[in-house]
Amino acid sequence: MSIQHFRVALIPFFAAFCLPVFAHPETLVKVKDAEDQLGARVGYIELDLNSGKILESFRPEERFPMMSTFKVLLCGAVLSRVDAGQEQLGRRIHYSQNDLVEYSPVTEKHLTDGMTVRELCSAAITMSDNTAANLLLTTIGGPKELTAFLHNMGDHVTRLDRWEPELNEAIPNDERDTTMPAAMATTLRKLLTGELLTLASRQQLIDWMEADKVAGPLLRSALPAGWFIADKSGAGERGSRGIIAALGPDGKPSRIVVIYTTGSQATMDERNRQIAEIGASLIKHW
C-alpha cells in the first residue's frame, strides 16, 4: 500500500482519535458579512469528516447552483462504474471539434489522439474542462443518470439537468442544476469515506481534487503551510461562485467545507476574496 493510499485508508482512524471539535460562531459572522459585502445569498456548511456531524452552517438547506462543483460527483459516478466493471479508466475516447464547448483548455489539445477516461476526469476536476465533463456525462448516460446515481446514494436534493455550459445559467428560483450545502457536503463525505467506492477509487477521487489547479484564489489562499486540501470550485452566471473541499491540518483532511453564493453584482475577484476570507476565519478558529 502506498503512503497516499495509507493516508486515505486511515482518515477515519486518525479522526477518531482527534480531540473533540467545537464550532466557532466567528466564522458564521464572516459568512454573514460576506453576504453584506456581496449583496447576495451565501450558503455555508462545515462537517466533521469522521462523524458527519454538522459543526457550523448557514442557509444549509437553500438551493444554490452547483456550477462546476458537480464534476466531482460526476467522476465519482464514473469511478463507481469502474468498480462495477462497467468502465475502464484506460479506455480512450475520441471526439471532434464539434464536441468542444466553451472553456476546454485540455480537451482542445487532444482532438487528434483523444483522451482516456482517467485523463478526462483529471481534466474535468483539476482544470474544470467543460468538454471533458460533457464527454464523461455521455459515458454514464447524461445528466439524468448522474441525478439517479445521487438518488441511489441517498441524495434526493442534488440534481443535474443540463450539460456544460448551460448548467451554469443560475436563474433565480430555478431548481435545475442545483444542490443544497448540506446535501453536497453529505454526498461528498460519502464519496470520500464511505463504502460506495473502493479504496482505490476513493484515493483516485481525492487525488484529482488535491491536484486542483484553478481554485488557488479561494480556500487555498488562506491555508497555512502543512495543511491538506482537496477541492473543486465552480463559477456561473449572475454572480455565482462555489467551492467544495476536504481539508485539515497535519497533512490530512478532517472536515468537509461547502460554500456557495449566487445573485451578486460583485466582480469575480471580490467573490473570490470573500470566500478566501471565510476560509481564513475557519482556519483561525479551527
Rank of each mutant, 00 (worst) to 15 (best):
H5F: 06
H5P: 09
P12D: 07
P12Y: 13
F14Y: 09
A15S: 15
A16L: 15
L19W: 15
L19G: 14
V21T: 10
V21G: 08
H24K: 15
H24A: 15
T27Q: 06
V29L: 12
K30N: 07
K32Y: 09
D33G: 13
Q37Y: 15
L38H: 07
L38E: 06
R41Y: 10
E46A: 10
E46G: 05
D48A: 08
S51L: 05
I54C: 09
L55A: 06
S57H: 12
S57I: 07
R59N: 09
R59E: 03
P60C: 12
S68M: 00
S68P: 00
L73E: 03
L73N: 05
L73H: 07
L74S: 03
L79F: 04
A84M: 10
A84S: 12
E87L: 11
L89C: 05
G90H: 12
H94I: 15
H94E: 11
H94N: 13
Y95N: 01
V101R: 08
E108K: 11
H110L: 08
T116E: 11
R118Q: 13
S122I: 13
I125M: 11
M127L: 11
S128H: 00
T131G: 15
T131Y: 05
G141H: 07
G142N: 06
K144Y: 13
T147R: 11
T147W: 04
A148T: 14
H151Y: 14
G154M: 06
H156V: 11
T158S: 11
T158F: 07
D161H: 07
W163M: 13
P165H: 06
L167P: 04
N168T: 07
D174E: 08
E175N: 13
T179I: 01
T179K: 00
A183W: 08
T187G: 08
R189N: 11
L191W: 05
L191P: 00
E195A: 06
L197V: 06
A200S: 15
S201G: 10
Q203W: 07
L205S: 01
L205Y: 02
I206K: 12
D207C: 10
K213V: 11
A215E: 04
R220E: 03
R220A: 04
R220Y: 02
R220D: 03
A225F: 10
W227I: 02
I229F: 03
G236W: 01
G236L: 01
E237R: 13
E237I: 10
G248P: 00
G248F: 01
D250K: 13
K252C: 12
R255A: 04
V258T: 07
I259D: 00
T261L: 10
S264K: 05
Q265P: 11
M268Y: 08
D269V: 13
N272Q: 05
I275S: 01
A280W: 11
I283C: 09
